[in-house]
Design a protein around this nucleic acid. Structure first.
Ligand SMILES: [Zn+2]
Ligand SMILES: [Zn+2]
Ligand SMILES: [Zn+2]
Ligand SMILES: [Zn+2]
Lengths: 162, 162
DNA sequence: ATAATAATGTGATGTTATAACAATTCAATG
DNA sequence: CATTGAATTGTTATAACATCACATTATTAT
């Protein structure tokens, strides 16, 4: 199911608690459905990621985890991220070495990311048109697609009032 | 101008010398036109990259550079790569942390990359259709595109005889 | 309770990329 | 040619990102 809030790039002042709580709730449901355990550590990592709509590096997440005297090691974060990615709750942005919460968890989707150069926020597009066009272009060359990385930089509507 | 060889994914046995020599020749022309210097170091990096159609990591390139007793440091490679990328002679594959020679040097193009999971070879697509579809999808969300990273993995025609 | 499995802890290490500053080479000018 | 400023390269150190290997603990199933 799509996100409750509509704004694609949520404006600076939006009620972000609900973004985060929706994401956590969706994660719990998905993990239950799949018989997986959303442990405290994994949930804390997911919460750290959902502190905003900006991608975070693994070590940024680690710092947030350890803010109040935590003693987690990088491995803990990477393992949690692997779990969250396996469950479609988090995406990795290859062009940034960073991670961001999925806005369409549960959907089986191929995503494209719009990354704002000004404010750093990221929106997740799920354009079937883009996906299919890529598939056609690849097929024309005899290439069988298994996965796509589509990351687009530019200026978001909040930073680009046209 | 497009590459002389047609095969999009050059077959294993192709005459690769001409791929490399064409690329070097194009680089010389482009640098002359722009009043830039294709120094020995830069050329050696470009040659290393053109030893094949597989992407190479910066440290792979460094190893090739230093094969015969060279003493170059990583910085030398990264600086040469920056130069070559600025001049549109080399692309970086974000999903691989690796670099590959551009097959359309001189063209002002937005590229997509097809990366074979079996043989590791990479082909550079320059699909205007993909480019425009991405532009439309982004515009629909009020996003102004400045650059795109499109990297597709799967199986190339040489590895996927259908 | 026991045993198997899953998750986490821990320390070391591997990999990719950049910072900072010194030395050298190059091209232009007089 | 000699001078000079800019571009390039050398050098060392360090930052940033990611994984390996193995020990320990927690959870689940029998
Ligand atoms: Zn939000
Ligand atoms: Zn913005
Ligand atoms: Zn070739
Ligand atoms: Zn192949």
């Amino acid at each position: 199911m799509p996100h409750k809030h509509d704004p694609f790039f949520p404006p600076p002042g939006h009620d972000h608690r609900s973004c985060a709580s929706e994401a956590i709730a969706a994660a719990e449901t998905i993990c239950q459905d799949r018989g997986s355990r959303l442990t405290a550590l994994r949930q804390r990592v997911l919460e750290a990621i959902w502190e905003g709509h900006r991608p975070l590096g693994a070590y940024d997440i680690l710092a947030r985890l350890n803010r109040n005297g935590g003693r987690n090691a990088p491995m803990a974060v990477y393992r949690a991220l692997d779990f969250l990615m396996d469950h479609g709750l988090v995406h990795r942005l290859a062009s940034r070495n960073a991670f961001i919460g999925c806005r369409h968890p549960g959907d089986d989707h191929s995503a494209q990311f719009l990354i704002c150069d000004s404010c750093g926020s990221v929106a997740e597009l799920a354009s079937d048109d883009v996906h299919k066009t890529i598939g056609r272009a690849a097929a024309k060359k005899g290439f069988a697609v298994t996965s796509e990385t589509v990351e687009i930089t530019g200026h978001c509507p909040n930073c680009n009032p046209s």
